[in-house]
Nucleic acid binder design. Structure first.
Lengths: 248, 248
DNA sequence: TCAACACCTTGATTCAGATCAAATGAAGGC
DNA sequence: GCCTTCATTTGATCTGAATCAAGGTGTTGA
């Protein structure tokens, strides 16, 4: 445990998402107290790998701050991201020892962790945890399927617009100028990471970002800072007929 | 529950997969009996739609025989399959009313169903069901993520080989000539359905099937009957470094 | 026996996005 | 201030798969 971890441990735990997302819905006080005792924090620096595909992962966790990605790599180096973990998202698989994909911190990252064994025991003793986790997993499955439509059938421009829409949505709470209809946020991903998420090359990502800028859908300040002038227009560019259900 | 009890229970209902996959692992006699009473069967003809995206789905089900697909469609008609349901696969989402994708029978189909309300009640009363379902959902999520790699990064030839490998694997029990190393099976999908699953056009599917035939990886008898001479070679064509974990 | 139809194959051409190749720009170290 | 480094943009060219366009094959039903 690092010094930083220890410091976090002594803090008030009000910000731990597992508590709220995995348990709160139907929990009882005793269960909450039990979970509180079990949890601990881990910090990772931007770029650090949390676990490699095939490795043993002895904890389950929930993102507190920062962004992590799940990715799969082929023998020849082709890479596809299969998940984007933003604050409050859950990682880890109770009931299986190894992970099937790399988990990487793309920004500095703090996760709230539970030792897997203890969490599993807890799950068996507390049905509401398993049920909440099932609900979350089904949401993730829906997101994954929405993403399959993007990867299989959307154009490069639609892919970029979709990704921007997702990030904008998830950041909604943090965004400025919401009242004016403008959404402002910083991309937590490099162009290369975006390309790995969208099944494109980084050059195509860059070109389509420029194209969206030129047609007035977004404004770019620096490389990472994005201003969305009209969210509905962005959604239209994304080709979504729904309301962006992938955000769930 | 003794082994003999289990045998007795399985005799009257040997073909119902929900019972085996969702419950058996940790079940008790009462719960089994309760499930037995709740279940009923539905049949669909090839081509029939089971539920449309957005519709209310008042049951959960498990495929007994036949093949069904899950697909999403964009406003302009672009379609992407997001799931292939083979015998023993589960459909339906306890805890949500509507489905997010079309469910279609691609062959004649028999499903073993449970009314959703009753199943949910049952789930709350019987923790093992929720836990088993969580495990199944996590497996599905892994498959979906494996499929994202295919859609985002594989070539047309690799996509076709991957699909053939999946179907071959899942049919392993039914296949002939297993001892000789040859795998023989019928494709349950048209070329168009294959293309919707793989994010290709039907012409490309047809061309790549021919290409695999010409290079001796597969033999085709008629349009649907496939002979795989060397499964390892097929896996190599599929570009998988793993053992094809998507089959789980 | 032969339409009609659904499904599949094959060929010719086009095009979106990949690949190859510089050039630009911003941030940190000396 | 100047060099180095790394992320990004932009340009030129190439290519794998899409698109457009015939034909072929097998099945159903009159």
């Amino acid at each position: 445990m690092t010094v930083q971890d220890r410091n976090l441990k002594t803090q008030d735990c009000g910000d731990c998402p597992i508590r709220h997302r995995a348990v709160c819905a139907r929990c009882e006080t005793d269960e909450l107290a039990q979970l509180e005792q079990m949890k601990y924090y881990r910090s990772y620096q931007a770029g650090q790998t949390v676990v490699w595909s095939g490795d043993h992962m002895d904890f389950v966790a929930s993102v507190v701050t920062g962004v992590a990605t799940l990715s799969q790599t082929m023998e020849d180096g082709r890479r596809q991201m299969v998940g984007l973990l933003l604050p409050s998202d859950f990682v880890g698989r109770p009931g299986r020892d190894t992970v099937a994909y790399d988990v990487t911190a793309t920004t500095d990252l703090v996760m709230c962790c539970f030792r897997k064994k203890a969490f599993e025991t807890m799950m068996i003793a507390t049905p509401s945890v398993a049920q909440r986790l099932l609900e979350m997993t089904l949401d993730e499955l829906d997101s994954a399927r929405e993403w399959m439509l993007l990867l299989g059938r959307k154009t490069a421009r639609e892919k970029i617009a979709s990704l921007l829409a997702i990030i904008a949505r998830r950041n909604a709470g943090l965004m400025l100028k919401r009242a004016t209809g403008r959404l402002v946020f910083d991309l937590p991903l490099t162009r290369e990471e975006m390309s790995d998420y969208l099944g494109l090359t980084l050059e195509t990502v860059s070109r389509q970002m420029s194209a969206l800028r030129k047609s007035g859908v977004i404004e770019l300040e620096g490389k990472r800072h994005v201003v969305v002038n009209d969210f509905d227009l962005l959604m239209e560019e994304a080709g979504d007929d729904s309301d962006g259900g992938m955000l769930s």
